[in-house]
Amino acid sequence: MKIPRFTYHRPATEEEALAMLTEFGEDAKVLAGGQSLIPLMALRLSRPAHLIDIGGLRELAAIRERSGTVSVGAAVRHVEVERSALVARAAPLAAAAMPHIGHGAIRNRGTACGSLAHADPAAELPAVALAAGASFVVRRASGERTVPASEFFLGYLTCDMGPDELLVEWRLPTWPVTAGWSVQEVSRRHGDFALLGMAAMIDTDPVGRISTAALSLFGAASTPIRVDAAEKLLTGEPPSAALFDEAAEIVKGQLDPPGDLHGTAAYRKHLGAVLTRRCLSEAAGRLGAAA
């Protein structure tokens, strides 16, 4: 397999990268870790004329906490998120997703923002972003905007970014210390894309009733999806196995997943119920564990 020809650019600053994106627009792709883009190019599913390599931009390589958010820069690799004490404390849902992403060798090179901008609906991080109420800082030469996760993922491998824009930062709200979390998935082989997966968070009020519930599925549709009906059912109730069973049935009923040679649609619906129970009971066990 030969990757199609392209012109390689290594901007020295973010500003230079944005200028290149303005100049080349549709003809350019941003290269960070390359763990999604390079295989697409090897298979000739993508053939950009220009590659803009931001992998070495130190200004985009930081994980920071500021004003109630954890921010992950565009050049931060999965392995750095996985090992970050800050992420483990202030964004435990993201931390829980990391070991599921690809394999060690992939996480050593791939970036969190790259995976998010790639917007694969079967990937973990888009679902984490949706469950956690994250947002994305998207910049072009003429300015920047912040897009909430609920509006960012538009379809299969498609997110709300123009050809001249760069995803510079993934912002996760600092985790509420009382809340519990869980990421569960079923895949054919550890590290493969999930047949179905879920990222969940629940929080409780002072009398122990569920005050917030977020159930976000990946591998279920052309984007990650939340299951509002199940979240509504959970809200206001004290956590219990019976309640979680009821939520699981709702998730199963609401799902309309694709079927393929790895698993039928009916099997994936069944997994929806299984993963809901697993996620909710694990998240309930972690209520207050981030404190």
Partner: peptide, 9 residues
Amino acid sequence: AAARSCLML
């Protein structure tokens, strides 16, 4: 660190 040399330019 381990890396896939086919996934790296």
